[in-house]
Write a protein that binds this DNA or RNA. Structure first.
Length: 525
RNA sequence: GCCCCUGUAGUUCAACGGAUAGAACGAGAGACUCCUAAGCUCUAAAUAGAGGUUCAAUUCCUCUCAGGGGUACCA
């Protein structure tokens, strides 16, 4: 249990016992250390005298409990903090793990870029955030599947085909199209007749082939470079091959959710909260992506996921209502669907906006960015920002500032620890004692260390991943201050021993935090 | 038109309805006889505007202004 949870429990029990009221007490870390390690506003909420409530809260956990302006402020005792060092060492990389997921299966879908071109900065943003959230969920006791949905059929594939053929219906531009032309020369030379398909199917066929190449040779390597491992690459086309589309149609018919109008088949999505009904099969007989989406969500549900999370770009914000409408129609609890909209990344060059477009062939790929600034910097850069922020990205600036990226500040703390450990005499690390750890900077460091599980807990609840880099920065600052104030290796045997234990604990937490973000932990810098 | 998101130091971003609005970069100043100076310490600098709800508003509501996205028998 986290320290915060323990305090919460103490508080809630005391209130129930003395006031006969069941409350959910809010316990938070105050912005200013002056107000203690944790604080609650519960007295104000209950309109009770905080001093009176404070009297009920006697525990060896606290050095003191104060009240100020209606708040109750908790100051953790030295003994409690010292004890925590041993606990961190004992739990090692499991420290910070929570059990709130209870083994529940979660599907996290992210990136899912169309296989019509390279992954862009926007895909990178969603990719890093999705991956980080997946890490966090895993450490919170969920069983996570990372999934990439490949839209490998439909209109954009045909358009890709035209682009590779280079006819007048060509849409996509860019170097990669030229490369594809080279790679597919064999197919292109033969033309529609020799490939033995009707002319109108030819672009489709070329597009499918091109999409495969893009997926295999551009997207998958880029994803690998991003440090992401998907458990499932789910093909839209496979829904057709497996007959899932037909099944979905008959299911919807059975539920009387389909009607015909103007030669097309429509899904009645308005009753489920959508703005308008949606077309499933167009007048020309072509199935829409929306039909696939229904089959796809059905498939996810059938695979046994209890929670389904999507990371989508803001250009897909219109999807939210539709996905929820599908879930409702399928009888899946909407509250277990979580759609995180990432606002778009705007590219700036020399202070001027460059409008990115795969169609126009203007874009910056995520691979190019990683090549320029490195993976750790790229990950940290995107993870720091709230999904809601409209991100302005200036490559020149990023390049210039990458050497000063705060991620190095954090990694530097880790490298410093490793350096100390390399120089340190060998002690057997004990998991008890630590009575000499009492310098304010030592205790502050412990205070910071034990926050990790709380940060993870908050992030699981609201999916605001930017909390993690923020915490990592705070942690590194606290460590650097400790480093300034407390020399670890000294003539004092006992102090050296205990400080080494503390440093080791800090290393564990730093590493756990950085690995949540998928950022490396160098031993030397 | 309707729907979603945003507006916070010079810049890029933080802040479950809470206390003195935090960082980083940039600007200015300082400290090393000592485990890595990619570090430490200090200074200046911000909630777009107007109302409202609340004991308490950057946060919630309404309006204004300024941006981004969506609103297809495209994906």
């Amino acid at each position: 249990m986290t320290t915060r949870q323990i305090i919460k429990q103490l508080l809630e029990r005391a209130i129930k016992k003395n006031y006969g009221k069941k409350v959910k007490a809010g316990v938070e870390k105050p912005q200013n250390f002056f107000f203690g390690d944790y604080a609650t506003n519960v007295a104000m909420m209950l309109k009770q005298d905080p001093n009176k409530i404070a009297l009920f809260l006697k525990s060896p956990l606290f050095e003191k409990v104060e009240t100020k302006r209606g708040f109750i402020n908790f100051f953790l005792s030295k003994e409690y903090l010292q004890k925590k060092v041993g606990q961190i060492l004992k739990q090692g990389e499991r420290f910070g793990d929570l059990k709130i997921g209870r083994g529940e299966r979660v599907n996290v879908e992210f990136v899912s870029a169309n296989p019509t071109g390279p992954l862009t900065l926007g895909n990178g943003r969603g990719g890093f955030c999705g991956d980080c959230l997946a890490n966090i969920l895993e450490r919170s006791g969920f069983k996570v599947t990372r999934e990439y949905y490949i839209n490998d059929r439909g209109k954009q594939v045909v358009q890709l085909g035209h682009s590779v053929i280079g006819d007048e219906e060509s849409v996509y531009k860019g170097n990669y199209i030229e490369e594809l032309k080279g790679k597919m020369k064999g197919v292109l030379v033969k033309g529609p007749i020799l490939v033995k398909v009707p002319a109108q199917k030819y672009a489709d066929r070329v597009g499918e082939k091109a999409a495969n190449i893009i997926l295999k040779e551009m997207i998958k390597p880029a994803v690998k470079k991003m440090g992401i491992k998907f458990d499932t690459w789910f093909s839209e086309k496979s829904l057709y091959k497996k007959g899932e589309i037909k099944k979905t149609l008959s299911l919807l018919r059975k539920k009387k959710l389909i009607y015909e109008k103007e030669g097309a088949f429509w899904f009645k999505s308005i009753p489920f909260g959508d703005d308008k009904d949606r077309v499933l099969i167009k007048e020309d007989g072509e199935e829409t992506y929306f039909l696939s989406d229904i089959a796809y969500l059905t498939d996810k549900i059938n695979r046994g996921f209890k929670k389904i999370i999507f990371f989508l770009g803001a250009d897909h914000s219109g999807y939210v209502q539709r996905i929820k409408a599908i879930a409702k129609a399928l009888g899946f609890p909407v509250e277990n669907i979580d759609i995180i909209i990432m606002q778009l990344v705007k590219l700036f060059e020399k202070g001027k906006e460059v409008r990115m477009s795969k169609r126009a062939g203007i874009y910056l790929t995520i691979e190019e960015l990683i090549d320029e600034v490195g993976l750790d910097v790229a990950r940290f850069f995107f993870l720091q920002r709230s999904p809601d922020s409209h991100l302005n990205f200036d490559l020149d600036l990023a390049r210039k500032q990458s050497a000063k990226n705060p991620v190095y500040y954090i990694q530097y703390a880790h490298a410093r620890i490793c350096s100390i450990l390399r120089k340190s005499p060998k002690y057997k690390i004990q998991d008890k004692g630590y009575k000499t750890l009492s310098h304010p900077s030592e205790l502050n460091l412990i205070r910071q260390l034990i926050r990790l599980p709380e940060v993870i807990e908050d992030t699981v609840k609201d999916r605001q991943v930017q909390r993690i880099p923020q915490y990592a920065l705070d942690l590194a600052t606290t460590f650097h201050q400790f480093y300034r104030d407390c020399k670890v290796i000294s003539d004092n045997n006992q102090s050296t021993k205990e400080r080494l234990a503390l440093v080791l604990a800090a290393k564990i937490i730093l590493k756990n935090t950085l690995s949540l973000m998928g950022i490396s932990t160098p031993e030397k810098m």
